[in-house]
């Protein structure tokens, strides 16, 4: 396996954290995803769940069935046989309406980056997005791949009551919100595509590692589709 030797930390009585790096890199994230997928195929005895993040993977277990040392041994065996390049995620599409009323920060992003609103929208559509991890709240999937020219910092103060379905960006990351929540990220559109699908067989649209494309829809399409979907 390429890269540094991973680090194993015992978390309380019920988990092991496998870390591939201290700082964010594509290599470390690819290792996280590869190990996550290997675990799904070949879980250790007493396995409860794995949580992939940017540079590490949390592996939790039933303390009555196993312990840290046994789980670490299993993980080391998986890592020895790991083929990082073999990983591939699904492709997912998210529809976005960039109407300025629905993307109240489009103008601010345009003036911060010296681009026109249309250029901001085209840059957003051109991004090469991957699902890095979930976090913050149910269904909040952090996507990497926002184009350099529209990377803007977070606002100094969060805005309250940002509706579910908002497409928001900060730095290299983008996400589609699932709840009405405050956010300091820039709101550039609204999506009728639901990350929390409401389908009991596939309740989340993305898995970590999936590739995501955004497709533009007009206001009329958005309004029509919005009525046909609902949040949990």
């Amino acid at each position: 396996m390429p890269g540094h030797a991973p680090k194993f930390d015992a978390i309380a009585d019920h988990a092991v954290l496998v870390s591939f790096a201290d700082t964010i890199s594509d290599e470390a994230h690819a290792q996280v995803i590869a190990l996550d997928q290997a675990l799904a195929k070949n879980p250790p005895q007493g396995f409860v769940e794995a949580v992939p993040a940017l540079v590490n993977l949390l592996v939790s277990f039933d303390v009555m069935a196993t312990d840290h040392a046994v789980v670490i041994m299993h993980l080391k065996a998986l890592l020895d046989a790991l083929e990082v390049n073999s990983v591939s995620g699904h492709e997912r599409e998210v529809l976005v309406c960039y109407d300025t009323e629905l993307g109240p920060d489009l103008d601010a992003v345009a003036s911060a980056t010296g681009l026109s609103v249309d250029a901001v929208i085209n840059a957003h559509l051109s991004g090469d997005y991957r699902v890095l991890m979930y976090g913050f709240a149910p269904g909040y999937a952090y996507l990497s791949g926002v184009a350099n020219e529209i990377q803007v910092p977070r606002k100094t103060k969060p805005v309250r009551d940002v509706p579910a379905g908002s497409v928001i960006i900060a730095g290299p990351q983008c996400l589609v919100t699932t709840l009405t929540m405050p956010t300091g990220w820039s709101i550039i559109g609204q999506s009728p595509t639901r990350i929390l699908t409401g389908d009991p067989d596939a309740p989340f649209l993305f898995d970590v590692g999936d590739k995501v494309t955004f497709s533009r829809i007009n206001r009329a399409t958005y309004e029509r589709m919005k009525d046909g979907t609902h949040h949990v």
């Binding site: 978390i11 309380a12 988990a15 954290l17 700082t23 993040a53 540079v55 590490n56 949390l58 976090g135």
Partner: peptide, 9 residues
Amino acid sequence: IPSEPIARG
């Protein structure tokens, strides 16, 4: 630090 997984506790 990069966002990392969190456990109960």
